[in-house]
Amino acid sequence: MSIATFRKKLSANDVGQTGAHQGGLLIPKGEKDLLAMLPSLDRSVKNPDAWIDCADESGHVLKLRFVYYNNKLHDPGGTRNEYRITHLTGWFRDVGAREGDELEISRTDLGHYEIAIRSAGFAEEPVEFGLRVRLSAWRRVH
């Protein structure tokens, strides 16, 4: 049974459709409940991280990296101050994730993490000047 579940609508950039290199899914600092569900990171350390074993619906266990890029707090001229979940690109490709699908991540009452893709179920709109990037927020679903 999950104690917390969050979803994020995936952008073309999230799933690699734009050809751009992205450093994982952004978790805004204002997403306090989602950040509380993830492992605690020590802000006094430069770029602290934690590895999360996360099972998908087929039982495959992914090793995801939860990282706080914080060189703005540690280096003169540093610019990054953001949380991200990385190491998802290959899995997105394997499960056929597309723009508009939703990534769902949960933590169970036993402390295990689960991950799934929820299909958008609609055709992509044609875009005249290439793929557009749509930003979307995380939302709690349970």
Rank of each mutant, 00 (worst) to 15 (best):
T79S: 15
G19M: 10
E57N: 11
S58T: 15
S2G: 01
R65F: 03
K32F: 11
V67M: 10
K9D: 05
E31H: 04
R43L: 14
P76A: 13
S58F: 12
G23H: 05
D56W: 11
K9A: 10
Q22P: 00
A36N: 11
K46P: 08
H60T: 13
L64Q: 02
S44V: 09
I3A: 01
G23I: 02
G30F: 12
G59C: 09
V67R: 06
S2M: 04
T18N: 06
L62S: 02
F66Q: 01
G23N: 09
Q22Y: 02
G19I: 07
I52Y: 05
S2N: 06
K72W: 11
S11G: 10
R7I: 14
Y68E: 02
D56C: 08
N70C: 14
Q22F: 00
Y69A: 09
D14Y: 06
N13T: 10
F66C: 07
A55E: 11
N81P: 12
V15C: 09
G16I: 04
S44E: 12
V67P: 01
R80N: 12
R80D: 11
N81M: 14
W51G: 02
T79F: 13
S44Q: 13
S2Q: 01
S11V: 04
C54V: 11
K29Y: 09
H21Q: 02
I3Y: 03
T18W: 07
W51D: 13
N70H: 09
P39W: 07
N81W: 11
G30Y: 14
S2H: 03
N81Y: 13
R65Y: 05
I3F: 00
T79E: 14
S2A: 12
G30K: 15
D56S: 10
K9R: 15
K46Q: 13
G78A: 05
L26T: 04
A55C: 09
H74A: 08
R80L: 13
K63T: 06
I27H: 00
D53M: 12
Q22N: 05
S58Y: 08
H74G: 03
E57R: 14
V45P: 08
F6D: 03
R7A: 04
L26P: 00
H21I: 00
V15W: 09
A4L: 04
P28V: 06
K32T: 11
V15D: 04
